[in-house]
């Protein structure tokens, strides 16, 4: 069977086909990954349209506002004032109420596939997202909390946890304002997680984990400053509760460390940045040495015509390996002693 066209699949997804018409499509989709993917995209489209045309929480709040509006006692205009106030209050409630989707309310972000999108954009709360802030960006999560991302910061969102959304800051810095409620919002980093049910806090990733070397991963860390409310930090090494106005360090290899005073955070951050610079230099040196080591190994295997020259001290002579090809394990190679340094050394 050829692939059904988009209209046919659309009609099927919206249950507009008779059972006899739908059956061949079901059979085809069961065996065709391409059509299954298209069907899933049509379901996504349907959910997005339903959310836009019939925003359940907004309509419900609007209806409640109208239901609670005071009954007019006269036909004058005065009676409309409390009603208008109630409607306005309801509207504000609606606008501030959490929805089932994440919203980019300001700025631009890049998606995993390289596309850039600008506010206002909605993201399905049921899916996972990896976003990179192209410039300063603000998001409202599906449960009402907000996140302000600094340019270049990378934020992951997943449909997990008590609130149905879990954030992961991989790079950069972000400010979180957690919508107050008994359930906790979890913000993860490579060094540990932050949990809060009413906090306002900032997170700055000091060492990133993604795409780094094992060395970077080992020292992944984040600086957390709680501005209001409360937050607790946790990783495999331990937990700590952070009070408003305090800062703490999350490091993969250590229990969360509370800083004595907020100003310590800046000093510590400076030290960590210096350490990061040293680590980067060491990594660069390791990379250079590894490249050199590989070159030498290749040459020892006889890939370089004329063998390999091991120079003597002061360039006055040395030993040349003159056997070509890969020697078998345990076999010998022929070395030639040469007192004169050749014009071209091995590379």
């Amino acid at each position: 069977m050829n692939h059904p066209d988009l209209d046919r699949l659309t009609a099927w997804v919206h249950e507009l086909l008779e059972p006899a018409e739908a059956r061949p499509l079901e059979d085809h989709a069961a065996e065709c990954a391409e059509c299954r993917d298209l069907v899933e995209r049509l379901h996504e489209e349907a959910r997005a349209l339903a959310a836009e045309i019939a925003p359940e929480h907004r309509l419900s709040a609007l209806k409640q506002t109208l239901l609670q509006a005071p009954r007019p006692r006269s036909r004058g205009l005065l009676w409309q004032i409390p009603l208008a106030a109630a409607v306005l209050f309801g509207l504000l409630t609606v606008l501030l109420s959490p929805g089932p989707r994440h919203s980019l309310t300001a700025g631009r972000v890049a998606l995993e596939d390289g596309r850039e999108v600008a506010a206002p954009v909605d993201f399905a709360g049921s899916k996972s997202w990896n976003l990179r802030a192209v410039d300063r960006a603000s998001l409202r999560l599906s449960e009402g909390s907000t996140v302000d991302l600094e340019p270049g910061s990378r934020l992951g969102l997943e449909a997990l946890g008590e609130r149905g959304v879990q954030a992961r800051l991989a790079t950069g810095a972000a400010a979180f304002v957690v919508a107050p409620e008994p359930r906790r919002l979890i913000v993860c980093s490579a060094a540990g997680r932050i949990e809060s049910n009413d906090g306002k806090f900032t997170v700055r990733i000091v060492f990133e984990d993604e795409g780094g070397t094992p060395m970077k991963g080992m020292i992944a860390g984040a600086l957390v400053t709680v501005l209001a409310g409360s937050a607790s930090l946790a990783n495999a090494q331990g937990t700590a509760s952070v009070e408003p106005g305090r800062a703490a360090v999350l490091a993969r290899t250590e229990a969360p460390l509370l800083l004595a005073a907020p100003q310590d955070a800046e000093a510590l951050l400076k030290k960590l940045e210096q350490l990061a610079a040293r680590v980067a230099k060491l990594e660069e040196e390791i990379g250079r040495l590894e490249t050199r080591n590989k070159q030498l190994k290749d040459q020892l295997k006889g890939n370089a015509p004329g063998g390999v020259w091991f120079g003597g001290a002061g360039g006055t002579g040395g030993v040349r390996v003159i056997q070509n090809g890969n020697p078998a394990p345990g076999s010998s190679v022929i070395l030639e002693l040469d007192e004169n340094r050749p014009e071209k050394k091995d590379k």
């Binding site: 298209l38 996504e44 349209l49 999108v117 954009v121 993201f123 399905a124």
Partner: peptide, 17 residues
Amino acid sequence: AAPIAEPVDRDRLREAL
């Protein structure tokens, strides 16, 4: 045209509606 894909640009969707 292909189905409207996530993430949905709300302004464009409203304009289209």
